[in-house]
Design a binder for these strands. Structure first.
Length: 354
DNA sequence: AAACGGAGCAACCGCAGTAAC
DNA sequence: CGTTACTGCGGTTGCTCCGTT
């Protein structure tokens, strides 16, 4: 039943893609021609615009949009974002699609509370790197730069202010000591880095502490579930909360989606164990690099909710059998409706543009 | 119960570097 | 070679939720 529904979704996507393409080409040619006319036959250099702002949606993403985006990226891989709105029919700009994917939909993202260890890492890295959130995020592979930035602005900034106040008192007492400590920290970091870079130690720090490359290159199959699974999970989550609910409260759905994505990324027990090991080793490496004690902190703790979810997902779930007729109807009704709208908007004059 | 304000966070904006036409 | 889009990144905004009055 699920397979049939996904097949229908694909059909819907295909239809939507074609319609979107028609609208896109019409709009592009129209705006291009208008631009040329405005410029009094002046030749416009450079690329033609990938999309214009007409009919581009803003605001929170709906679960339906997420499904479309996820399934498209699963099929084609991330990248070439300008093609995404066109090919999917999403009424979003490419930038918005990219942001949505990188910050929320891509697999391996951990949502929820930051662990104590993560906090420490962020504080230390921020002190070393400044507000270079992307660089900081590369040391916390499961967190996005946006997430870290938000967390910093809401939680850690205050914490740092408080600490700075205390440290300010301390600094008045012994500024020299504070400076020496800072230099030691930097020296330790450098030393650790040079050790890590030395070819004699292939399993050195760098392998654990190296910035993750994000998802620039296609993720290995083990890290990303198949498109069908992804969409099925998304739909499952959507059905559980109910279409109306998910439409009005996209945040809740977003979280469940992200959890699913995480569950996808650790789709086998082996990868889970490896993730735990990586967390511990990362913790140790970081400890050696920055010199704070994290022995009392369970670095792998943060993955436990996901593990729980994974266990949940692995159980035979009756909700997988939920009839998808509601969403199917919604998808196709909307598709049919939009199709009519699109076609009614196409004037004979615009048809001549082809 | 209603109003208000702060916290949290998703998404947008704008800039800079790079790539494409 | 000039112009413009694409991409990545950091800063900012605005919405929603929740606690307090």
């Amino acid at each position: 039943m699920l397979v049939l529904s996904l097949e229908k979704i694909k059909q819907f996507q295909e239809k939507r893609r074609i319609k979107a393409r028609v609208v896109f080409l019409l709009e592009r040619k129209k705006s291009w021609r208008q631009a040329c006319e405005k410029g009094r036959n002046k030749v416009i250099m450079g690329r033609p615009p990938c999309c214009d702002k007409i009919g581009v949606m803003k605001g929170p993403w709906t679960p339906e949009e997420d499904i479309i985006l996820v399934s498209y990226i699963q099929e084609h891989g991330p990248g070439n974002w300008r093609a995404v709105p066109t090919n999917t029919g999403l009424l979003r700009c490419s930038k918005s699609c990219r942001l949505r994917w990188t910050n929320y939909l891509r697999p391996g993202i951990k949502r929820g509370n930051f662990t104590h260890n993560e906090e420490k890492m962020i504080i230390h890295l921020q002190a070393l790197l400044g507000n270079r959130w992307a660089a900081i995020a590369s040391y916390l592979p499961q967190r996005t730069d946006n997430d870290i930035k938000n967390y910093w602005n809401t939680h850690l900034k205050k914490l740092k202010k408080l600490q700075a106040g205390q440290e300010g008192q301390f600094r008045q007492i012994s500024r020299g000591q504070w400076e020496r400590r800072l230099q030691t920290d930097i020296h330790m970091a450098r030393q650790a880095l040079s050790e890590a870079l030395s070819p004699e130690k292939p399993n050195s720090l760098l392998t654990e502490l190296k910035p993750s490359c994000g998802y620039e290159k296609p993720a290995p199959a083990s890290l990303y579930a198949s498109s069908t699974e992804n969409i099925a999970k998304l739909l499952k989550g959507w059905m559980r909360s109910g279409p109306n609910q998910s439409l009005t409260n996209s945040t809740t759905t977003q979280n469940s989606f992200n959890n699913m994505a995480v569950a996808d990324s650790f789709s086998s027990e082996e990868t889970l164990n490896r993730a735990d090991e990586n967390d511990t080793e990362l913790s140790e490496a970081f400890e050696s690099l920055f010199g704070f004690d994290s022995s009392n902190i369970d670095f792998s703790q943060s993955t436990s909710p996901d593990t729980g979810l994974l266990q949940d997902e692995s159980k035979p779930n009756s909700s997988a059998q939920v009839p998808l007729s509601v969403i199917e109807r919604w998808l196709f009704d909307e598709g049919a409706m939009q199709g009519k709208e699109y076609l009614s908007e196409v004037t004979p004059d615009e048809n001549n543009l082809f």
